[in-house]
């Protein structure tokens, strides 16, 4: 059983009624699909808000990040980095935004 940390964007935290990062337990391989399945089971209010109903495709303006990598276009059943599976690094769900940089 892996304990995975998940960071939700502001509006989804409000919708789920949580104030901090989620801690999700995953049995088996830690993949984006497994994390999202677990989140939606615990917080049904988020169904359809991260992935489309039916197709389970990522909503167009959301992105998945971990370990400074954009994982949005990776296959949903691809194993996530070990640092995510071990809980060292969070799996980040965030709304797509344009422009900006922290390094000048």
């Amino acid at each position: 059983m892996s304990k995975v940390r998940v960071v939700l964007p502001f509006h989804l935290r409000n919708l789920a009624g949580v104030s901090a990062d989620l801690e999700i337990e995953i049995a088996g391989a830690v993949t984006a699909r497994a994390i999202l399945d677990a989140i939606e089971a615990r917080y049904p209010v988020l169904r359809g808000a991260i992935r489309e109903h039916g197709t389970l495709q990522r909503r167009a303006f959301l992105r998945f990040f971990a370990c400074e990598q954009d994982l949005s276009h990776d296959p949903p059943d691809a194993p996530l980095p070990e640092a995510v599976a071990s809980g060292k690094e969070p799996f980040i769900i965030l709304g797509a935004i344009a422009g900006g940089s922290t390094s000048k």
């Binding site: 964007p9 989804l12 919708l15 209010v45 359809g48 909503r59 303006f61 709304g95």
Partner: peptide
């Protein structure tokens, strides 16, 4: 509603 998160 939201363009990012869809319909609630």
């Amino acid at each position: 509603t939201s363009g990012w998160f869809g319909q609630i």
